[in-house]
């Protein structure tokens, strides 16, 4: 080690902290009480920001916010709301502005994502059986919800002349699902589960939303980007995991904390010259 190594490494940490610093910034995370929503919130907190977890009442976002505050020794806030309802989105906005007087970051993370890989009842998911009710419900959360939140929170950012929207798309926004992954031995073809069509449609739509908003609010100082993550290990059946791993150059699914770097990069000033971009984080699945 060089003589200068100690002061140098302290300076190094300072440099990184300021580039990726979110101190004083308020981030709204939809689907915030879910597995990945909580992970997004953790990294926002680690960078000094405040997370507002928005989720449906049954997901208990208030309780999750209390847990997060304890775990990260940070301030966080949970609000139960249905983001597909404009009135409820406005109420969330009012509550946040009353409490913090600012909104700096929106992470559009909420979407329906039924676990077809663990399902033995997949008949409903097949294209020929797919109901209009499920189609409408999935689009309402994934697209209408993202549109309403972007409009309300993004407008607030545009008014202040600075802000970031980060949309969570998926590797399935850029490639089709490989339905062989979801097959169950012994089931007839007509009952084999598939990844629902709405998942591809919603996630691809998210990329269109990203580009539209990026150009629309570019002059207002609001940057809008997307990430397209692959699947994370979350107790899926081994056969599914084995099959999926073979589709990925890195030979593995993601760990649940491996999207935090991208979240912080794109939510902070470290990405100040990026807007309208889609960052694919898939272990290489779409590169071969």
């Amino acid at each position: 080690m060089s003589r200068a190594s100690r002061p140098q490494s302290q300076a190094a940490n300072e440099g990184l902290r300021s580039l990726f610093n979110l101190a004083g910034r308020v981030a709204v995370i939809t689907g915030g009480a879910g597995l990945l929503g909580m992970k997004h919130a953790e990294v926002i907190a680690a960078a000094g920001g405040t997370s507002v977890l928005v989720d449906l009442p049954q997901a208990c976002p208030e309780d999750r916010a209390v847990e997060l505050s304890k775990k990260c020794h940070c301030d966080s806030f949970g609000i139960a709301a249905n983001i597909a309802n404009p009135g409820e989105v406005d109420a969330v906005s009012d509550a946040i502005l009353r409490k913090y007087s600012r909104i700096d970051i929106l992470i559009n993370n909420a979407a329906n994502n039924p676990k077809m890989e663990a399902s033995s009842d997949g008949e409903w998911s097949r294209l020929e059986n797919f109901s209009l009710e499920v189609w409408d419900a999935d689009l309402r959360v994934g697209l209408t919800g993202a549109f309403l939140c972007s409009r309300t929170f993004g407008l607030e950012m545009a008014k202040r002349g600075k802000g970031v929207i980060l949309n969570i798309a998926s590797d399935l926004a850029v490639i089709a699902p490989d339905q062989r992954l979801y097959r169950k031995d012994g089931l007839p073809e007509s009952e084999q589960p598939v990844k629902p069509i709405t998942y591809s449609v919603v996630k691809s739509g998210i990329l269109g939303l990203t580009r539209y908003l990026a150009t629309y609010w570019a002059n207002a100082g609001v940057r809008v980007n997307a990430i397209s993550p692959g699947g994370v290990y979350n107790g899926q059946p081994q056969t599914f995991v084995t099959r999926l791993q073979q589709l990925i150059p890195m030979g593995r699914m993601a760990n649940v904390d491996e999207y935090q770097g991208a979240i912080l990069f794109l939510c902070s000033d470290a990405s100040s010259y990026m807007t309208g971009a889609n960052l694919i984080i898939d272990g290489g699945r779409t590169c071969w």
Binding site: A254, Y259, M274, I280, G284
Partner: peptide
Amino acid sequence: YVTGQALIVDGG
């Protein structure tokens, strides 16, 4: 977990 990607930094 990022590999094989093209990260565009182009101001849009």
